[in-house]
């Protein structure tokens, strides 16, 4: 069990969606400094919507969200956002250095501001942390998926964030690069709180400290991931499980035979329970 310290993200009775239609219902969630939360759930289950709410990109329909004691819009520049690689334009003409430099652009007008020594240092440090310093002069669009993902992490780090928020960091990334990414995140977690969203339960299960499941509703107990069984359940978010209401223990009252067919296509690791 992890000793919670300071609350950095608090979501209460939150509903959110698009065009008046809720994608997320009655979400309760809290995160503390030093946490490394993996949010899993099926595609279309509302993971990206949740991220948009936290980043202040989507107003909630009901309930409240507090990020670092402020509203999401007020707090968003203190978050390091790492979008999915596939959301960026594959052919966009830009160098790695210029991508990471975006993390130092300031609010307000006039892009003529030249790079201060401090900015330069922050960019170089971020590039180094994400292990892409040697790629700085390369063109972003000639990198592999894993390399581009690390560049986007470097861009988020250049903002000196208090929480790192990642959307599907391993989509379009091959197996070996995925392992490398998680090593990097584990290292960053020593000084940063991390919130990570993925549809890929098996890939994140061994890396995160705690796991939450989103599929319209959310199940989260601020607990360390313990068993394969719990992850299987979490991935599927079966309706009857959610019907118990929150909070409850995902693992305690369920056997998992009815789910086994769904996990066969999942990742190769962790099958050896």
């Amino acid at each position: 069990m992890q000793a919670p310290t300071k609350s950095i993200l608090r979501i209460e009775d939150m509903w959110a969606g698009y065009d008046g239609e809720a994608v997320l219902e009655d979400i309760q969630f809290e995160m503390f400094t030093g946490d490394y939360v993996g949010i899993i759930g099926p595609n279309g289950g509302g993971k990206t919507t949740l991220i948009k709410v936290i980043l202040g990109l989507l107003p909630v329909m009901r309930g409240s969200v507090s990020v670092l004691g402020q509203s999401p819009v007020q707090a968003r520049d203190r978050l390091g956002y790492v979008p999915q690689v596939s959301r960026t334009d594959r052919d966009f003409p830009i160098s790695v250095w210029d991508v990471v430099r975006m993390g130092r652009e300031k609010a307000g007008f006039f892009g003529v501001r030249s790079l201060s020594a401090q900015d330069k240092q922050a960019i170089e440090r971020a590039l180094g942390q994400a292990d892409v310093l040697d790629l700085a002069k390369r063109s972003f669009n000639e990198l592999s998926g894993g390399q581009r993902q690390r560049v986007l992490i470097a861009r988020a780090l250049a903002t000196n964030p208090e929480i790192l928020v990642l959307d599907e960091p391993t989509a379009n990334v091959d197996g070996q690069s995925t392992a490398r990414l998680y090593d990097l995140l584990a290292e960053l977690n020593q000084s940063l709180s991390i919130l990570l969203v993925s549809h890929d339960l098996m890939a994140i299960s061994t890396h995160v400290k705690t796991i939450a499941c989103v599929n319209r509703k959310m199940v989260y107990h601020n607990e360390k991931v313990l068993t394969q069984e719990m992850m299987d359940l979490g991935y599927e978010c079966p309706v009857e499980l959610l019907a118990h209401g929150v909070p409850h223990r995902v693992l305690a009252h369920h056997d998992h035979d009815h789910l086994s067919s769904n996990i066969s296509h999942k990742q190769e690791n962790n099958q050896d329970v």
Binding site: L57, R76, D77, Y81, R87, M102, A107, T159
Partner: peptide, 11 residues
């Protein structure tokens, strides 16, 4: 390049 990131940065 990335409108969402720019928004989060309050550009």
């Amino acid at each position: 390049f990335d409108e969402e990131f720019a928004t989060v940065r309050n550009l």
